[in-house]
Write a protein that binds this DNA or RNA. Sequence first.
RNA 1: GGCCCCAUCGUCUAGAGGCCCAGGACACGGCCCUCUCAAGGCUGAAACACGGGUUCGAAUCCCGUUGGGGCCA
Length: 474
Amino acid sequence: MASSAPASVRVRFAPSPTGHLHVGGARTALFNWLFARHHRGTFILRIEDTDRSRSTEEHIGAILDALRWLGLDWDEGPPAPGYRQTERLDLYRDHAERLRAAGRAYYCDCPPELLEAQRKAAEARKETFRYSGRCRDRGLTAGALRLRIPDEGLTVVHDLINGPVAFDHRQLDDWILLRSDGTPTYNFCVVVDDVTMRISHVIRGNDHLSNTPKQILCYEALGYAPPEFAHVSMILGPDRHRLSKRHGATAVEAFRDQGVLPEAMVNYLARLGWSHGDQEIFTREELVALFDIKDVSPSAAVFDHTKLLWLSQEYLKRMDGPTLAERLEPYLARAGLAVPGDRAWLGRVADTLKERAHTLTEMIEAGRFYFERPTRYDPAAAQKLFTGESAARLDRLIRRLEALPEFTAPALEALFREQAAALGVKLVDLAQPIRLAVTGRTASPPLFEVLALLGREETLARLRAARAALEARR
RNA sequence: GGCCCCAUCGUCUAGAGGCCCAGGACACGGCCCUCUCAAGGCUGAAACACGGGUUCGAAUCCCGUUGGGGCCA
């Protein structure tokens, strides 16, 4: 079987630090990581920063942060030296020289205008443009260095996801290894890096499949056996075009800022293109145990934000209070709210909120009233619920609450039910005005739990404030 | 334009010739539960792109068309 892994699995994720970590890149990283962990291999992080004009330190930092947030730890890579292409320039030069000395590569001084004319001519003839080979035997000692590609034959990529893909050499041209200024090209760097890092499996985006035969020919010219390849499909936007910023949030850190749980992000990304029967929710351990590159689908997938949010809520619901409290704290601070000193209390608050929110930030919005008094009451609701009748009821309730021996949810519920019965109204008619008074809204976690968590003093303060507001309306 | 990849409900997918007049999940509708909102339970609608083959039999294999994506740029 082509998918059986060799003794030593070494895979890499090689982002270009020209932007943030994209969900597509994150999924590629995840698949590499899962493959490495499943086979007890090595996961390597390499920074492809040869495009100096667009690569920045900030982007490198952001990408590393995003990977850490997802829990994708790497065994080799930054901050250790030698994992950035800009640190490896000598390696590319050495390998290029080897190819030249062996006659597998040659210098070419064809001017751009000539190449452009040939490209246009090829297009007019409805053929693939292919370098003419004009400089192949001219014995030049300077210019761009090209790899000599056999005129005839076929190179077959035995892709672990897509199966065998054959490329006719007549469609391939003598591609450039080093530009005339001596800088290496992207495809050449990748080959040299993967060879020198002893990469066993190249798992990368489908957009590189077309480059693979060129690279395989380069491995062979260098005298190395090519690695295994697995090309993962693209992630698309709702319009079935390649996912990009105009589709909204695509950077991993944007989801982090939204308060999506990283566990959910990993689970979602794993299920995008990979599946294991009907199972939707996987622990990290299950993913490592079950992941098999041959179960990855070759077809492109549309990114579904809604399903990601659903998963995030699933993880929220399963998380216990103390853990949630810890996760919530940085988001509270960012929302401009004081982080409560009592973490146990915050945990109980979170428990009432978690099935009402998809993300940590939604949780904070839904539970804002726990942390600060309502600054206003929902106007339509106030119109309907703050009536002359409710003023009298409020007074009565305030007195009863002052006297309630135990300020707990069950005791509060018993009191409210008793009051409703005495007044001959439904519980909802009593609960809603109080909910509005205490939270400023008509929807909240169960009222009695809310009151108990707020405590007697705070509850009474809010009820009195509502009573005053009610008076002012008249 | 050439070459390459892809094609099951709106979306993610199960399906590796008979188990499928196609299963699960998200989203959507209905009902139940209920102090609100959720969550939950039950339930409904919803797909094998099209056309040819191969075969006793095809969502599954082959060819073509169409559509989408990628690379060359």
